[in-house]
Computed example of a mutant assay.
Amino acid sequence: MKFLEYMSFYSSYLEELYASKPLLSSTPFQNQMNVLEADAFSGGHLFAPAMKQHGYDNTFAVVNCKQAQNAWARENKIPTELATRNQIICNQIDTIRPDVLHIADPVALDPRLLNECSWKPKLVMAWRAAPIPDDADWSNVDLMISTLGVCREKAMKLGARSVQKFSPAFPEFVAKKIANEIKQWDVVFAGQVGTLHRKRQQLIQHLIGMPEFQSKNRSLRLYLANWTSVTFDDAKSFIKPAVWGMEMFRTLKKGRIVVNNHIDMADNMASNMRIFETLGVGSFLLTEESDELAELFEPGVEVETYSCLSEMEDKIRYYLNHPEKREAIAKRGQVRCFRDHGLVARSQELDLLIKNYLS
Rank of each mutant, 00 (worst) to 15 (best):
M1L: 10
M1Y: 05
F3C: 07
S8L: 12
S11D: 13
L17W: 03
A19H: 14
L24V: 08
P28V: 13
N31Q: 14
M33T: 06
A40S: 15
A40V: 13
G43I: 09
F47R: 01
H54P: 01
G55C: 09
Y56P: 03
D57Y: 05
N58F: 11
K66D: 13
L82Q: 14
Q87H: 08
C90E: 13
R97G: 02
A104K: 10
L109F: 09
L114P: 06
L114I: 06
N115Y: 11
K122Y: 06
K122S: 15
M125T: 06
A126C: 03
P131F: 12
L148D: 11
V150Q: 12
A155Y: 00
M156W: 03
K165R: 12
F166K: 01
F170C: 05
K176G: 12
A179M: 10
A190L: 14
V193W: 10
T195V: 09
R198N: 10
Q202K: 10
L203N: 02
G209R: 14
K216A: 11
R218A: 05
N226K: 15
W227K: 11
S229W: 10
D234T: 04
A235H: 04
K236P: 07
K236Y: 09
F238A: 01
V243A: 03
G245M: 00
F249I: 05
I257V: 04
E277P: 12
F284H: 00
A294F: 05
P299W: 00
P299V: 00
E302N: 09
E311C: 03
L320F: 05
P323D: 08
R326N: 09
A328M: 13
A328D: 14
Q334W: 00
H341M: 00
K355M: 10
N356L: 07
N356W: 08
